[in-house]
Computed example of a mutant assay.
Amino acid sequence: MAEPRLWTPADAREWIAVPDAESDKYSRGVLGVVTGSDRYPGAAVIGVEAAIRTGVGMVRYLGADRPANLVLQRRPEIVTAEGRVQAWLIGSGMDPGKLTREESSLLDAALHGGEPVVADAGSLRRVAAGAHQRAFGVDESWRIVATPHVGELATMLSGLGSPAEVGAIRADPVSYAADVAARLGIVVVLKGGTTHVVAPDGDAIAISGGSPWLATAGTGDALAGIIGALVATNAERVLADPGCLASVAASGVLLHTAAGDAAATEGPLAALDVAEAVRGVVGGLLR
């Protein structure tokens, strides 16, 4: 396997969609979001905030009443009714062992709807169990970006019948991420001090650096929101060339890393600090 490529701000800039005078909220991309739960409602708030700050025409949130109400309190422009979307963000703040029937139905609808999907946390077992069994070709499977940390990747590997110790994955992260990516036909974003983005064909990108203060609750939810927004705003390019999805995901990781640096200039940060800082990072890249 070749050494992972590094990703630069210039690379990320290519995947920031800038509106023009003819743009509207639909042409700029609509991100459907199925995240959060009654037990973990904050994940929905953080992910939605990060998506909005990254740049997207509309966020359509579908979920339980408690997280939906908190999302609306934070961002009253969010739409909580079903309708058309260009991409999905699912699973953040959801316990795969405690999903309600409605939550399960929403996750399955997103995974099988044909739009690109960013799958986090509580949706990862579903991806491992069913992505390779979906009723369309390999190129379609490339429409899924999974965002596990090391422990979640170990769970995915167990679901595929290839259990691995967390320590072994940490020692050789790219190989294990590449195994899951190839077997499921998905892009894997393995989160860590260095985050590895691996495509089904084995192409790997590494994004390192970033403030150690990012190691705090909720920052992974922010990352998922950032990637979700970029996928939604680049949905036409992704559908035309699913192979570019790894580049979109890597650009999201770079924005997240830079936002963490910006939020940590004066010390400890919280996840919403990172989400709020994304706007300035995007503006800086475009300038």
Score class of each variant (00 low, 15 high):
L107K: 09
T194F: 01
Y26E: 06
V278W: 09
S104K: 15
I144M: 11
A217V: 09
A224M: 03
T100L: 04
D139W: 13
S247A: 15
V71Q: 06
G114F: 06
K98A: 15
R13H: 02
V59Q: 08
I226Y: 08
D120Y: 07
G161H: 11
G113I: 03
A215L: 00
E102L: 05
G122A: 08
G47S: 15
V274Q: 09
L153T: 09
A129Y: 01
A164T: 15
T265Y: 01
R75W: 00
V282I: 13
A164H: 00
N69M: 13
A21Q: 12
T216Y: 07
L107A: 06
S141V: 01
S104E: 14
V197Y: 04
A204C: 13
G193Y: 02
L70H: 04
A229D: 07
A121L: 01
I16S: 05
V174I: 11
K191Y: 06
D24C: 12
G192L: 02
A270F: 12
G260N: 11
Q133D: 12
H112L: 14
S104F: 00
A128M: 08
A12E: 04
R66M: 05
G267F: 06
E82F: 02
A204H: 12
H196R: 07
P173H: 09
E115M: 14
R126K: 12
R74V: 07
P212Q: 12
I205P: 02
I144F: 14
A129Q: 14
G32Y: 03
Y40I: 12
E165Y: 00
S92P: 04
T100V: 03
V174M: 04
R39Q: 10
M58P: 00
A222T: 11
G91V: 08
A2T: 14
T35G: 08
G63S: 06
A146Q: 08
Y40E: 01
A215Q: 11
S175L: 11
L106A: 06
I169W: 09
L255D: 06
A178M: 10
S141Q: 15
D139Q: 13
L286P: 11
I207A: 08
A246W: 02
